[in-house]
Amino acid sequence: MTIATAKLTDPAVRAFVTALNAGDRTAFFDALTPGATMSDDGSDRDVEDWTEREIFSSSGHLDVQSETQNGHALVANYRNDTWGEMRTAWRFTVDGGKISRFETGQA
C-alpha cells in the first residue's frame, strides 16, 4: 500500500518527497539545509551530483510504502529511467524544519 505524499508525518520529509516527485530542483534544495549531506548504500555522495544523476535527469519517483521514527524513516519503491524500480530505505535527519542529511539504499 502506498502512502500519499500529503499524508507523510514530517513536513520536511513531505517537502522533500513532493519536490523529488515533481522534479522540482528549487523546491528540493529549499527542503535541505545549507551544506546538507547524503549517502547511498552506505557511501557518502555529493548531494548535487547524486541528485542530478539519480533524480532530476533520470525522472526519479518515490512511492512511499511505510514510515517509522516519526516520519524520519521511509521504505519506498523508487524508480528512475536509469535503474528501473527498486525497494529502498530512506532515513532523514531534520534540523530546524529542513533536512540536514538523508541516507538511502536498497531495502
Rank of each mutant, 00 (worst) to 15 (best):
G71M: 09
L62D: 07
S66H: 13
W50P: 00
E54D: 15
R53A: 12
D10K: 02
P11F: 11
S39E: 14
D40C: 15
W83Y: 12
A22F: 14
D24P: 10
A19G: 12
L62S: 06
A27Q: 15
A36E: 00
D81G: 06
A76Q: 02
G23R: 02
R45Q: 09
G42Y: 08
R91P: 04
E85L: 05
P11Y: 14
T51E: 01
T104C: 14
R87P: 07
R53F: 15
A19Y: 08
D10N: 11
A76K: 01
A22C: 15
M86D: 06
V75R: 14
G97P: 00
F16M: 10
S66D: 10
T37E: 03
W90S: 05
K98E: 05
L74G: 00
R101V: 05
F28S: 05
G60V: 08
D10G: 05
D41S: 13
F16Q: 04
R91E: 09
D41G: 11
R91W: 12
A22H: 15
R79L: 06
D24L: 12
R45Y: 02
Y78A: 03
A73H: 10
A36H: 00
D49F: 00
F102G: 05
L74M: 07
G96T: 06
S100D: 05
D63G: 10
A15I: 02
H72Y: 05
V47Y: 02
T33F: 01
W90V: 04
A76R: 01
A27P: 15
Q69S: 15
T82Y: 11
V17Y: 02
Q65Y: 11
D40N: 15
G42S: 10
A76M: 06
G71R: 08
G35S: 09
A89Q: 08
T51H: 01
F102L: 11
E103T: 03
I99P: 00
A73W: 04
V17G: 03
V64W: 07
N70Y: 13
A36N: 01
S43E: 11
Y78W: 10
A12D: 00
G23M: 07
M38D: 06
S43H: 09
D81C: 06
T68S: 15
A19R: 10
F56R: 02
A73G: 03
T82K: 12
D95F: 07
M86C: 03
Q69P: 09
R25A: 14
A12W: 00
D81K: 11
R101N: 12
V75K: 12
S100F: 01
E48Q: 15
P11I: 13
A19E: 09
T93G: 01
A12Y: 00
T18N: 10
H61Q: 05
S57W: 09
D10H: 10
I99M: 03
W90N: 04
F102H: 05
S43T: 14
V75D: 06
G23E: 06
F16E: 03
